[in-house]
């Protein structure tokens, strides 16, 4: 039985989202399970590029060891993917990558409280103004690592601010720190639970860096076989892509991936009234107090 995939433009379904400018701040953490989660097409390389352009310092936490992603066998995949993740993070202007090395795609049985403790420790070390990650309320996410890390992160962002949570950390001179802002990845193609509530505008330079960072994951993307297949399919119809003329299959594969990243950034921009954009579920600093948020926003003044 064949399945028919029908793509419905988001612009038909929804009005433009409110545009959110990243708040002023100093540091951000991206907390996700896999080497490429911060650069994939549905987020979030553009926002990361924008934040580092604003002067933010950023770190990427890779919770799993990515041993199953790629064709080189477990230990090789782990190391290749880590190196490529570091390269992608550098392209986006980030400071570095922490790897927790939990077993890839086996994170359902990973103890939630242990994983959360690791995240809390690094939140207290870096005191990020923003955390980026998967949406813990997303439906239909078949990846156990996405689900587990998102849950751990959802707890950690506020529990890191409580003095009675892991008091041993204070022996190191660390202090409680509640993360005020979150941008959660909105995989609109996954349906309910992945809707966005905010669009972040990107510059052309942000999109360029996003494209390069995505292509840095050569172990899993930009496969020469894919380019070869695209060329063969075009040739079968008597067509060709002139821009790919003279390129090797490897070079052409990178270019095709870049087209896709450019297209998706334009698409999100078009849906939201700007040239380039990414979309997120954004949680602001007082959203956890639904009875007080509006009062604080209305009455808080500069010191």
């Amino acid at each position: 039985m064949k399945l028919a995939l029908v793509w419905v433009p988001l612009s038909i379904l929804a009005a433009p989202l409110p545009k959110v400018d990243p708040p002023a701040g100093k540091r951000f953490l991206v907390i996700q399970p896999h080497h490429d989660d911060h650069t994939t097409d549905y987020g979030m390389g553009g926002l990361i590029a924008r934040l580092t352009r604003m002067g933010y310092e950023g770190w990427f936490i890779r919770a799993s060891n990515d041993e199953k992603d790629g064709a080189h066998g477990y230990p090789h995949n782990d190391m290749i993917n880590l190196r490529e993740s570091e390269a992608a993070s550098r392209i986006l202007g980030m400071k570095g990558v922490y790897s927790f090395n939990w077993r890839n795609d086996y994170m359902d049985p990973t103890p939630l409280l242990e994983l959360r403790a690791q995240v809390i420790l690094l939140i207290r070390k870096h005191r990020p103004d923003i955390v980026l990650g998967h949406d813990p309320w997303g439906h239909y996410d078949r990846n156990p690592d996405h689900r587990k890390v998102a849950r751990a992160c959802a707890d950690a962002v506020w529990m890191a601010g409580l003095r009675n949570v892991h008091p041993e950390h204070f022996e190191l001179g660390l202090e409680p720190w509640r993360v005020p802002h979150q941008f959660l990845k909105a995989r609109v193609d996954y349906g309910r639970g992945h809707e966005a509530n905010a669009a972040v505008e990107l510059s052309e330079a942000d999109v360029q860096r996003k494209m390069k960072a995505y292509s840095a994951h050569r172990n899993v993307y930009a496969s020469p076989a894919m380019a070869k297949s695209v060329r063969a399919q075009l040739a079968a119809k008597g067509l060709k892509a002139p821009e790919l003329d003279g390129m090797t299959d490897e070079q052409a594969a990178v270019r095709i991936e870049e087209w896709h990243m450019d297209w998706v950034s334009r698409q999100r921009g078009q849906e939201n009234g700007v040239r380039y954009a990414e979309i997120y579920w954004y949680i602001n600093e007082f959203a956890h107090l639904p009875g007080l948020e509006s009062y604080i926003q209305k009455n808080a003044v500069k010191r």
Partner: peptide, 16 residues
Amino acid sequence: MRIRDRLESTGRRLPL
């Protein structure tokens, strides 16, 4: 206290 702490750390205050 958490509201006050957050506002103070970002140069703001809530008169209340």
